[in-house]
Design a protein around this nucleic acid. Structure first.
Lengths: 187, 187
DNA sequence: ATTTTTATTGAACAGTTGTATAATAAAAAG
DNA sequence: CTTTTTATTATACAACTGTTCAATAAAAAT
């Protein structure tokens, strides 16, 4: 199974396109393998030679979106500005914009029926991205992973609530709220 | 469908017991409705008259565990001590102990294949429980739900990492770590 | 104790799932 | 261009799913 084989690339592309098309009409858990394969004009057996279940097909897509999240997150660092430590993690702040621009996609990722694995991918990515910042800012040297998990998931808590409110707020408003919270307008 | 009907109570009980028994042998997503019904000696049609899918059966159980979480959480308040605001939310601190005592159960709730809905139930419960405390401690009066979601999910971030490390740490250690983090040993 | 209500059962149905195998066709390698 | 490799296809299979319906039995109501 070499990933460069044209046949594999074509098949996977067709399957993904079919899935995304179907996701416009129904929820992920209502879509069947049979359906995807019919639309993609791919044999059902072929589907199973690449993926164990539909969720794996979507997960592959999610992983690519996570790559974009990484790019978005690192963007403020790219111009050489050393990220003012006083201005409270302006990088974090790109997360809301990333989600806003993939709103349609995140409605699926955050929907109830979907496997928790998707959330873990998102959380893992945010953890990873915050790692360097947390490393500098925290005095807790041991259990860095725990501090990252705490910080990353706090932000995702806001994302969950944002989604629950059907993304009524704008990404800019979300950022302002985050800054407020980080500035200790509480506790 | 009156919930007091003995037949319903017996049926649901049998189904739950069967599911819990099977969960000792295999993962939730590997269990079939047919299997549960055979073990429970309940007709498959009856299963579907109560639940749409296996996940709903487990969810009903989860809701009861959430009731226990509420009791655990409120425990420190019960003796009339007004919860010292200086001692940094000692109530929160019961969450880790609750999870530790239901460790086996939470391994399922936090497993990858399980629907995100379970996580939402957990998060929603922690939000609800923290609400009163957050209300007092925060200066942000609007968007209280957002602050709660932030705080509650931060703790759950630690729970996720705790689970990822296969619950190696003790609940007491988790508490100490949380106190460290809340005491601003970071940022 | 009898009647009424209704949850459970058994059976059947079309459709989906996951797996296996031989034949085919497409791509890679030489 | 020919050979070799291997991904895809077509087909078949047993098992599970989700639904329906008439018959039954268990509980509730009187």
């Amino acid at each position: 199974m070499k990933l460069t084989d044209l046949r594999i690339i074509k098949t996977k592309e067709a399957l993904r396109e079919a899935l995304l098309a179907l996701l416009n009409t129904k929820a992920l858990n209502a879509i069947t393998v049979t359906e995807i394969c019919q639309l993609a004009k791919v044999n059902r057996g072929t589907f199973y030679s690449h993926y164990g279940q539909i969720e794996d097909l979507f997960e592959e897509y999610l992983e690519e979106i996570m790559e974009d999240l990484a790019v978005s997150y690192r963007e403020p660092y790219r111009h050489g500005k050393p990220v003012d430590p006083e201005s409270l993690n302006p990088a974090t702040i790109r997360i809301f914009h990333h989600i806003e621009s993939y709103k349609k996609f995140y409605r699926i990722v955050l929907s109830k029926q979907v496997p928790l694995a998707y959330y873990y991918l998102l959380h893992g990515q945010v953890c990873e991205l915050m790692k360097k910042d947390v490393e500098i800012q925290t005095r807790i040297k041991s259990d860095l992973a725990m501090v990252c998990a705490y910080q990353a998931n706090a932000i995702l808590g806001m994302v969950i609530e944002w989604h629950r409110q059907d993304f009524t707020k704008s990404a800019v408003e979300m950022n302002q709220l985050l800054v407020h919270i980080l500035n200790r307008e509480f506790n």
